[in-house]
């Protein structure tokens, strides 16, 4: 087994370095998600002025997503269409880039468009990325190129993180000087983990 130590160490190091900025995104976003009230008080969302405009020839005779895509293309707005609400009179949807949400509402009779935009900032951008692609609106998720890339990257980061934790255990096992304290760390972590789950799941 020891012959695998050098290549595993090299992989652990390089993969760890590559993944570390993404681990920062996921970790910072946990703090943002758990303390949204505090973030709102120190770094409120910046609401930009409302824009009213008009569009010609919106294709309503196709799928909701294609209609929404045609609208944002005409408006030259980029981002992921998160979900779409539509009735006989209006079609509305948010278009998101990490850290920026644009809400678009179109009057289907007049083609008048109302655009509102929120600047969320860097911290809420991590929050959005953490939640994506997520379990909701799966039929339209990945309608922007960046989301297609992020979907693959988010999965890759998780698999690499699993490799890092497994390879970390492998590397620790060969460090005799750290064996005792390492066992203590694993066992205490396991006790707290199990205890928490037992309590919280009833």
């Amino acid at each position: 087994m020891k012959k695998y130590y050098p290549p595993v160490r090299t992989l652990h190091l390089y993969i760890g370095l590559f993944v570390s900025p993404f681990v920062l995104i996921f970790s910072v976003s946990v703090l943002v998600l758990n303390h949204a009230g505090y973030l709102n008080s120190v770094m409120p969302v910046k609401v930009l002025p409302v824009i009213k405009t008009h569009l010609d020839k919106i294709p309503y005779d196709t799928s909701d997503l294609q209609t929404a895509k045609a609208i944002i293309q005409k408006l030259e707005i980029k981002g992921e269409i998160d979900f779409i609400s539509q009735n006989d009179d209006h079609i509305s949807f948010p278009v998101t880039l990490p850290g920026e949400i644009t809400k678009i509402e179109v009057n289907k009779h007049t083609n008048d468009v109302l655009i509102t935009r929120d600047e969320d900032g860097v911290f809420r951008a991590t929050n959005y990325l953490h939640k994506m692609p997520g379990p909701h609106n799966t039929t339209i998720r990945g309608n922007a190129t960046f989301m297609k890339i992020w979907r693959v990257l988010a999965d890759t980061v998780v698999y690499l993180l699993l490799f890092l934790s497994a390879s970390g255990i492998f590397l620790w096992y060969f460090l005799k000087a750290e064996r005792k304290l390492g066992w203590l760390a694993i066992i205490s972590g396991a006790i707290i983990f199990t205890g928490l789950l037992l309590f919280i799941l009833g």
Binding site: L161, S165, G168, I169, W172, G182, A185, G189, A190
Partner: peptide, 15 residues
């Protein structure tokens, strides 16, 4: 090393 070992089950759960 030791914080990583302590967190390993949590990392697996959330991953």
């Amino acid at each position: 090393i030791h914080i990583g070992l302590f967190l390993v089950l949590f990392i697996w759960l959330f991953s």
